[in-house]
């Protein structure tokens, strides 16, 4: 499998050259970062070029890198998992949005129609805007929801809660009353933790 992916990696570099980042082969998977301005044309060529033939966009999702340990760079990215049935290989394409405050990327709905709902989801959960999307509405969150819940600065319990108010005889929204709590803290251990000699 990895010999095949090395071939794909070489082909990518030969075909696109400077237009894409360095392909990274790790854990038997190939990842390539594409600058936002080349994103759409590279994706189109990945589908149509017989050397790649990625007929299927298996998944497209947003990610917020703001709290990734030791990470410096752009905050938001749209990550696509491509699949070629002809060549039986997969490729992960990352497109980082240039503006952290107002992330915008080009839509790939015209290349793979399935991207429609995936991009709506990335918009809903991460606030990434997709230019050229025919119908960029929220998809998973409630009607009238405010904010983008999967951003790292959005608390897990949210900001508002809903209850029935017997006096007003209707369902109302109010600020959350539950206290945030964390049972197990998030820890990144130093290298070689637990691997040293003797009792570790």
């Amino acid at each position: 499998m990895s010999a095949k992916l090395e071939r794909l990696s070489r082909q990518l570099q030969e075909t696109f050259g400077e237009r894409i980042g360095e392909p990274v082969l790790a854990l038997g998977e190939l990842t390539v970062a594409v600058p936002a301005q080349n994103y759409h044309e590279v994706m189109r060529q990945l589908r149509d070029d017989p050397a790649f033939r990625f007929e299927q966009l298996m998944d497209l999702s947003g990610i917020d890198y703001s709290e990734y340990t030791g990470y410096q760079g752009k905050r938001f990215a749209a990550v696509s998992q491509l699949l070629s049935l002809t060549h039986n290989w997969r490729l992960r394409v990352k497109a980082f949005a240039t503006d952290d405050e107002f992330p915008v990327l080009e839509s790939v709905v015209d290349i793979w129609n399935v991207a429609n709902w995936y991009e709506r989801e990335a918009f809903d959960l991460f606030g990434i805007h997709f230019e050229g999307h025919p119908d960029l509405r929220r998809i998973l969150t409630d009607y009238g929801f405010v904010g983008h819940p999967f951003r790292k600065d959005f608390p897990i319990s949210g900001y508002v809660e809903m209850r029935y108010d017997p006096e007003q005889k209707r369902v109302i929204y109010q600020p959350v009353t539950i206290e945030p709590r964390e049972v197990t803290p998030r820890i990144v251990r130093e290298e070689n933790y637990g691997k040293g000699g003797g009792r570790g």
Binding site: L27, E29, T31, M58, T69, T184, R186, V188
Partner: peptide
Amino acid sequence: GEAYVAIEHPKGEMGVWAVSDGANKPYR
């Protein structure tokens, strides 16, 4: 690191894209 693993779920392809930054919890 990151890994995308797909299996043949009865309904179709079920894929999990897991991103880790070395912590005891998934990053995404």
